[in-house]
Design a protein around this nucleic acid. Structure first.
Length: 269
DNA sequence: ATGGTGGTCCTACCA
């Protein structure tokens, strides 16, 4: 048996439900984790997904902003919504799915983008981003994955931690998403849960790897000024089972695309 | 080059 998990910042699930079904048809994942659904709780466009066999949908949504959802062919054995930083933002949802082996707890995150100015003293959005990372770190330290489960973290973490996760390390050191204080924070989060970065298990750290290209470029593909903002981490027990890692770069060229592209990990279980 | 584009929901705010 294999478990295929896809993560995608969809930037409005109602506007782009046709791209979601296109992706499901192409890759046929078992589980799809979405971020920035921008869809109020209870108004999720579930009918076309159920028609494709995705009968299990967990959502945490609000009007206008943020929002995360998990769409699955596999039944959930548990479900959990958390609100980090004591805000009402819908930025995290977790489910556990049953597999032939251990159940797998899947955490889906949408980390705050953090605004433009990388200084928490003058930019409260950046301060919120750093606080959110601190909360994640504390929560993972306590142990967020049940002892008899394996675990996965996916989502738009809005940080490109490695030198080759951005088109120019030097030019982006002072740009929110690649500043040292953010990458240090993300590294602490990762260490707190002993998470393995399975994307970089498949693509060496000295090779460029992007999941996001700005809408503001005249020609995103020619400029190729990308960043790796979307991530897939697993517990060390699950990492060796990750046999395939794919980034659907062509989705960035689809009509009315998201600025993020889908990332897929396949696990042999 | 302190712009550029895009989504939400109607006026700015967020990315």
């Amino acid at each position: 048996m294999s478990l295929k998990i896809v993560t995608w910042n969809i930037n409005s699930v109602r506007l782009r439900i046709g791209l979601v079904t296109r992706l499901l048809d192409m890759w046929k994942p078992d589980v799809l984790c979405l971020q920035e659904t921008k869809c109020p709780q209870g108004q999720f466009p579930s009918a076309p997904l159920r028609d494709m066999g995705y009968h299990h949908i967990a959502e945490s949504g609000q009007k206008g902003y943020h929002g995360v959802a998990i769409i699955s062919r596999l039944p959930f054995v548990s479900e959990d919504v958390r609100r980090f930083c004591a805000k009402d933002d819908c930025r995290h949802i977790a489910v556990a799915v049953a597999t032939r082996q251990k159940p797998v707890t899947i955490n889906n995150f949408y980390v705050p983008a953090g605004g433009d100015e990388p200084d928490p003293a003058i930019n409260e959005k950046f301060a919120h981003k750093l606080q959110f990372l601190d909360e994640m770190e504390k929560w993972f330290k306590k142990g967020s994955v049940p002892k008899d489960h394996e675990g996965v973290v996916v989502g738009d973490l809005n940080i490109a931690p490695l030198e080759h996760d951005v088109w120019s390390h030097k030019d982006l050191l002072k740009v929110v998403s690649h500043t040292p204080i953010e990458t240090a924070g993300l590294n602490r989060v990762q260490a707190a849960g002993k998470w393995v970065d399975v994307m970089r298990q498949h693509v060496p750290a000295d090779k460029k790897l992007y999941t996001w290209w700005s809408y503001r470029a005249k020609d995103w593909e020619a400029a190729d000024r990308g960043r790796r903002l979307d991530h897939i981490w697993t517990t060390s027990g699950l990492a060796p089972a990750c046999k395939e890692l794919r980034i659907l770069k062509e989705a960035r060229g689809w009509t009315q695309s998201s600025d993020h592209v889908p990332v897929m990990a396949r696990f042999a279980l």
